[in-house]
């Protein structure tokens, strides 16, 4: 039982760091620019498709990685310059409408280029097996790689935010946007940098997630909802909050899905137990969000 618990906890952490890679960009964009970007999931999808395409052409998973990052970053910069920049001073409804339109366009563009069929990619050589972590616990190497990459990115972002001049501006921007502008900082350049960085991380998450499930149209929307919950729970604009919230939500979600049906099975038939268990598990992270907002209305690590 404890082995199972550890394995499910690892699964939760792996889901959590994937959420973090997405949430990091989203929380900065939301916190600093005040823009709700629904199309963040499209950047995740674009990264996955571009990287998958390059990996298939070159035959190397690792050559696909820079292509995925570059494609997502370029797409992000283009979206910022062409659409988002016009929305900074509009209200949130306009932003939601415009970025929702971007989702539809991105999905159709991908369908035109790659078709509706999901694409299944292979794992990189050396990461296609599993390693023995404990006696009786073999864990897929690739999932460990995702956890390692997620933690490395978290550490890198912490250094960037807390130890560099850019990070200082980001922190200042998240706390008081108008004051930063009044002090003569080129806020437009800062916005572009932040948006590009967020897009790049979304592309990284998408490309890493590809070989586990499938690269398919709409893959971004599936995970985007959970990402927004992470941003809200963590506190808008806070990278640290996003990290903590992503891990908590990832583990809670996985644990509920893994163990709730088993518990319910003690008192009802397996099919009913799974139906109800999965149903409650799907609500789990939203209940958690409601609870957090009740106690701390601005999230766990609110910036202001």
């Amino acid at each position: 039982m404890s082995i199972l618990l550890i394995e499910q906890a690892l699964n939760g952490v792996q889901y959590g760091v994937t959420l973090f890679l997405l949430a990091a960009g989203l929380t900065l964009i939301f916190g600093i620019m005040g823009v709700i970007n629904l199309a963040h999931g499209s950047l995740y999808m674009i990264g996955a498709y571009a990287g998958m395409y390059a990996a298939a052409e070159t035959g190397s998973f690792w050559l696909g990685l820079p292509v995925a990052l570059a494609a997502a970053a370029v797409a992000g910069l283009a979206v910022e310059a062409l659409v988002i920049r016009r929305l900074y001073n509009r209200d949130h409804l306009d932003q939601v409408l415009a970025t929702f339109a971007l989702i539809l366009m991105a999905n159709q563009a991908i369908i035109l280029m790659f078709g509706r069929q999901p694409i299944f990619t292979r794992l990189p050589a050396g990461f296609d097996g599993s390693v023995q972590l404990l006696p009786g616990l073999a864990y897929p190497t690739y999932r460990l790689l995702i956890i390692a990459v997620g933690l490395a990115v978290a550490a890198g972002l912490w250094l960037l935010i807390n130890r560099t001049r850019v990070g200082m501006l980001v922190r200042a921007g998240a706390t008081n946007r108008d004051m930063v502008r009044a002090l003569g900082v080129d806020i437009r350049l800062l916005y572009t940098v932040v948006f590009g960085l967020g897009a790049l991380l979304a592309g990284l998450a998408g490309y890493m997630a590809g070989p586990i499930g499938a690269v398919q149209v709409g893959m971004g929307e599936q995970i985007l909802l959970a990402t927004f919950v992470v941003v809200v729970v963590g506190g808008v604009g806070s990278i640290r909050g996003a990290f903590v919230a992503a891990l908590i939500l990832g583990v809670v979600d996985t644990m509920l899905r893994a163990f709730l049906p088993t518990l319910l099975r003690q008192v009802m038939t397996p099919a009913e137990a799974d139906q109800l268990g999965i149903g409650i598990a799907s609500m789990g992270i939203y209940l958690l969000m409601a609870l957090v907002l009740l106690i701390r209305p601005r999230g766990l690590f609110a910036t202001a």
Binding site: L4, Q8, Y15, R257, A258, P270, D274, I278
Partner: peptide
């Protein structure tokens, strides 16, 4: 032993752990 999954599920990590157990 019966385990039910979801029709839109693509990540089966949790089920793999249950099979192993």
């Amino acid at each position: 032993t019966e385990i039910y999954t979801q029709l839109d599920q693509t990540d089966f990590a949790s089920e793999m752990a249950q099979i192993r157990a």
